[in-house]
């Protein structure tokens, strides 16, 4: 354990950032985030399938009880789905868009949530500890110090990897522009990039701003999903780093030649704080999954109607929430 603590004291980020696992395919070393993605997807699909079976209406022989969801996890999932659909997505996107994009948005939410929650469980550290207890502590300490955990097959927070969050943002990007081309068409999309129909077909004097708006919109095309990726990454890395730093205090004392009791005391206090921060992390896991999903929904809804082009610019320039006249849905500002 002392060795582990010493190793942990070297670089707290070593426990947070993505690293290679012990698995490889045809000589290519798989990263922990890749394995977490696959495991997370399997767990997410399995849990949601079980929940769906319990939420589904039962046979008529059960009477009114057939409408009751059985099982607490299924009930929690049902409450989340209902809340997201009826309280968040439908008011923001409208019935038509919400119905069309609900599967993607809910899938993104639950997938990201699963990955975030996986990050709260120290699977990788447990495997390293097991490795040490099996007598290979020297190698483990060496590996950890160099962020090369030879014995770790699975663990870590996949969403604490920019590669993963960018991958998710790519899907959001595609969804946003798919909606744009589907609803506005190519001409409408180009008009949207140029400031909207009113501006393009408006006064010639205003055409001077079209190139500026075009550049801003093109930049926004990429900045919006990139912001989604970085926001998710930063939030997940920050919390985990804080916890790793807390635990590194004890190791730092040992490394500096301090007494074991001092290191133990500090580690105990740090552990108490870590427990508190874990609750915060739990909240952040839900919050960030929601924000990623919700902002994707907002960006999609901004591409829904041609006559919203003008309002979007006001929106993008920091005028906050506005009402989409056609659909009558208030869209909150995504620039948070």
């Amino acid at each position: 354990m002392t060795t582990l603590l010493l190793a942990a004291g070297d670089n707290p980020l070593g426990h947070v950032l993505d690293r290679d696992s012990a698995l490889s395919i045809e000589g290519t070393r798989l990263t922990l985030s890749m394995i977490s993605l696959v495991v997370g997807a399997l767990v997410c699909i399995t849990v949601l399938m079980m929940a769906a079976r319990r939420i589904k209406t039962g046979p008529s022989s059960e009477g009114n009880a057939r409408f009751v969801t059985k099982g607490r996890i299924a009930q929690v999932i049902e409450v989340i789905v209902l809340g997201l659909r009826d309280q968040m997505l439908v008011p923001v996107m409208g019935e038509r868009l919400a119905k069309a994009w609900l599967p993607l948005l809910l899938s993104l939410f639950f997938f990201i949530l699963t990955l975030n929650l996986f990050g709260l469980v120290p699977f990788a550290d447990l495997q390293e500890m097991l490795h040490v207890m099996m007598g290979q502590h020297d190698q483990a300490a060496h590996d950890m110090a160099h962020t090369q955990p030879a014995a770790v097959f699975f663990g870590g927070t996949a969403t604490a990897s920019l590669s993963v969050t960018l991958g998710l943002a790519v899907i959001s990007f595609c969804a946003i522009w798919w909606q744009s081309f589907r609803d506005l068409g190519v001409k409408g999309t180009i008009e949207h990039l140029c400031g909207g129909h009113d501006l393009v077909h408006g006064s010639i004097g205003l055409w001077a701003v079209i190139p500026i708006i075009f550049v801003v919109e093109i930049g926004g095309m990429f900045i919006k999903p990139a912001a989604l990726a970085i926001r998710l990454l930063a939030n997940m890395v920050a919390g985990h780093t804080l916890m790793a730093v807390l635990f590194s205090f004890g190791a730092g004392v040992l490394k500096a030649g301090g007494p074991t009791w001092a290191a133990g005391s500090i580690t105990l206090v740090a552990g108490i704080f870590a427990v508190l921060i874990t609750f915060l992390e739990l909240f952040v896991a839900f919050l960030q999954a929601f924000i990623f999903m919700f902002l994707t929904a907002v960006f999609i809804s901004l591409m829904a109607h041609e006559d919203h082009g003008h309002e979007e610019h006001a929106h993008d320039q920091g005028h906050g929430g506005h009402d989409h006249g056609g659909s009558g849905h208030a869209v909150p500002s995504p620039a948070h």
Partner: peptide, 12 residues
């Protein structure tokens, strides 16, 4: 890294 990014896209 390209490989994790592609994995994320495909798995998602």
């Amino acid at each position: 890294q390209i490989l994790p990014l592609a994995t994320a896209v495909v798995v998602a």
